[in-house]
Design a binder for these strands. Sequence first.
RNA 1: GUCCCCAUCGUCUAGCCUGGCCUAGGACACCGGCCUUUCACGCCGGCGACAGGGGUUCAAAUCCCCUUGGGGACGCCA
Length: 498
Amino acid sequence: MTLDKTETTRVRFAPSPTGYLHLGGARTALYNWLWAKKTGGVFILRIEDTDAERSTAESTEGILHGLRWLGLEWDEGPFYQTANLPKHIEAATKLLESGHAYRCYCTREELDAQRKAAEAQKRAFIYDGRCRKLTEEESPAKLESGIPYVVRFRTPQTSAVAFDDLVYGRIEKQGHDIEDFVIVRSDGRPLYILSNAVDDAHDRITHVIRGADGIANTPKQVLIYNALGITPPTFAHMPLTLDNKKAKLSKRSHGEVVTVAYYEKRGFIPWALCNFMALLGWSSADGREFFTREELIEAFDLTRINRANSIFNYVPGDTKNWTDPKAIHFNSTYLRTIPPAELEPYVREELQSAGLWRESFEGEEKEWFLKTINLIRTRYLTLTDFSERGRCYFSDEFSFDQKAVAKNLKDSNLRTYLPELSDRLEALPDFTAYEIEEVFRTYSEEKGIKAGIIINGSRTAVSGTSVGPGLFEMLEVLGKDRVVKRLRDVTPLIPEAV
RNA sequence: GUCCCCAUCGUCUAGCCUGGCCUAGGACACCGGCCUUUCACGCCGGCGACAGGGGUUCAAAUCCCCUUGGGGACGCCA
């Protein structure tokens, strides 16, 4: 099989369904997707489920869900690697027949002992290839006797293998540094190293874009391609993302903060996460950081991928920066800058799950709804803020922050001011920010008090907090009825004069 | 231990290939200030890095070597 230069680009994301979709995997998927889109190619999803012991259907579901949530739709698949088993076996047989592979009868026990011995001597363990030396009589005899065997690749010892990586450049490895690796287990099931290469060839993959931990496998796979008479794909390894202690990211040691599902749960806009991940190991030529999908596809380039590993700056226990602060920055920026119409579906979903959604927000109150989310979003970080910090806009059942009450409602005169303001506001023909401000300014002048007293008091009375949008716009959005009621109902929280 | 890879502010990075425009630029975070009824936003300013040592050169963040540090791989896992 030769690679026609005019053939369209074909890339794949090939996760093993043995856990959740994590940030590292998602970023790999994103880079593949970007490259496919950029080149007008095809993005394939392949589930590498050959590890029967650890693969689960739940995991597959989670991966598919995560990719869809991120908006990284695949063009072909999902293909399941186990479905290609016959092809993998066929390839192994071919390698055996052509002499590129041989049967090895060494037992696990023997190999474990050798490995231990090597370790004890602080020596690298490389299988010594003793079975490749089996004589022509010995081998068939062993085969006859039914002794279990694995199939090993016969690595050329005297030559080197090299490949030109799109990000790391030329990587060369000496044959004698590569052991005769196993390609088929003793139970006849082929191993990843073989299956993966065979599938990539079968799917006509042109570019293998994967984590740098795959570099060590690449020379072995190149050997397999060559032995099978297949032109290897082009490789592009991307640097790994480590934690702030420079350890590999894993669900086990970092918990759900490294899973894509967690960002969905915590109120991320999917594209904000994609945009953040894209910048972990890649930068645009012009230094820009915010991109729409189309812009990122346009700007993306495999050759601008960085070679150094990057660190996911997550500090356990930090409640404000519960994930990398830059990721939060991306999310909050998107939250307050995308067109309200684009934001609306996300907010709707958030309010629905919080039980705050009303159908009228999409009907007669639509205009009000968009105006409201547009007003409050500038200080929100995630979508969950709409249902938590924004609760007072969508429900009359909101709680009072004790600090805010103590600070803004401590003046006992407010027991008089607030109801009086309420009366004046109720009499307003047009409940607009401008008219409302007039009421407040006039009132403070009449009483000879600082406007801040009634402004801050009112803020806490209607929202329960000491922070939020400009008061007058806020009251306008809240509407006359609610404002009038809340200003009166808050009286019990204000201390009586002594 | 062996092999492979990497090394610029706390973090993400630009610059490195094709040495001089780099008293090293941007972003996040942090700290000041302005704006202001609060909190944000916004704007202005500050803090802050070429791992170390040798070369090569008129000139090195950029090229070469060594050291150190870090990561990855070393499975009948993927």
